[in-house]
């Protein structure tokens, strides 16, 4: 008699717990960086376990929460793009509230963030400058940190030290400028050629996943991370990047750029209010 009761209780508890986490999230088991090509490899950096969505946020997911669709290339199963870093954190909070979760971000649209500095080359590119802080204990949706993103893209504890996320061959795992249009392109990168070839975003999950079952970590759209673009730290657990900066980090490269920028180790950055038809994001939650 005891056994069925225990089984029933376990099933009930599991049901309660899993009901909170949508199916398409993967548990990224924490630890030290295993990928030898990582910026964090051998530097005493540890990541705690967290959940990450298998796919980039799709337009369907975006519309369900935000009501409108800013994307240049339309399609339910295409990743949302033309979203700024501010749009992305706002989406996280709105989706959290919609699903009864605690919002992870405090967004103050009336206060200019003193940590938001002018770009040393181009001046004040970011004209939004909302003050955004975090609620570390909240269970709501959030952006990954740069370190979390790289850890997950590299395959976490299952890493095979691939160059791209899930492969050493870019065409196996990534949509980038050569393979995202009517036909495969050769030659040097040339925007006119890319436009005429109708390169664009592709439905999420169309390429091979990485060691953790995450799709499109290399290519399709570049993905916003929480961090300011700045120096990398060492010997830390769950680093959150610089305290201030002039741009936010993007990772993973996109359909428009060269394959080398889809390597998980590449560190991209863009002003937080910047948008583009190759700029999207992916969401996480604390374990």
């Amino acid at each position: 008699m005891k056994r069925p009761l225990i089984l029933a209780a376990t099933a009930f508890l599991a049901g309660v717990c899993w009901a909170e986490m949508p199916d398409n999230f993967v548990l990224i088991k924490g630890g030290l960086f295993k990928n030898e090509l990582s910026n964090y490899y051998g530097k005493g950096m540890t990541i705690s376990s967290f959940y990450m969505e298998k796919f980039e946020v799709t337009q369907k997911e975006w519309i369900e929460v935000m009501g409108t669709n800013p994307s240049k290339f339309k399609g339910d199963n295409l990743p949302v793009e033309m979203v700024s870093w501010y749009d992305s954190v706002e989406y996280c909070n709105k989706r959290s509230i919609k699903e009864g979760l605690q919002p992870y971000y405090n967004i103050d649209k009336n206060k200019k963030d003193p940590n938001n500095k002018p770009d040393p080359e181009f001046g004040d590119l970011d004209t939004v400058q909302w003050k955004v802080t975090i609620n570390p204990g909240a269970n709501g949706y959030r952006l990954p940190t740069e370190a979390e993103w790289e850890y997950a893209a590299d395959g976490g504890q299952l890493s095979q030290s691939y160059t791209y996320s899930g492969s050493d061959f870019e065409d196996e795992v990534a949509w980038y400028w050569r393979n995202s249009g009517d036909k495969d392109l050769t030659g040097v990168w040339l925007w006119r050629a890319i436009e005429e070839n109708h390169d664009q975003t592709r439905p999420v999950g169309g390429k091979k996943p990485n060691e953790l079952g995450l799709y499109d970590m290399s290519g399709n759209v570049r993905e916003w991370c929480w961090d300011w673009f700045g120096d990398l730290s060492a010997n830390e657990t769950d680093p959150e990047g610089s305290q201030s900066g002039y741009a936010r980090v993007w990772k993973g490269g996109g359909w428009m750029g060269d394959a080398r920028f889809t390597e998980p180790a590449y560190r991209g950055h863009l002003a937080a209010n910047g948008t583009g038809p190759d700029q999207g994001f992916r969401i996480c939650r604390n374990q």
Binding site: M256, G257, F261, L270, T275, G276, D278
Partner: peptide
């Protein structure tokens, strides 16, 4: 200066 324009990295200034 090219503001938020296509580049080998993707959209960039």
């Amino acid at each position: 200066t090219q503001y938020n324009q296509p580049s080998i990295e993707g959209t960039q200034t």
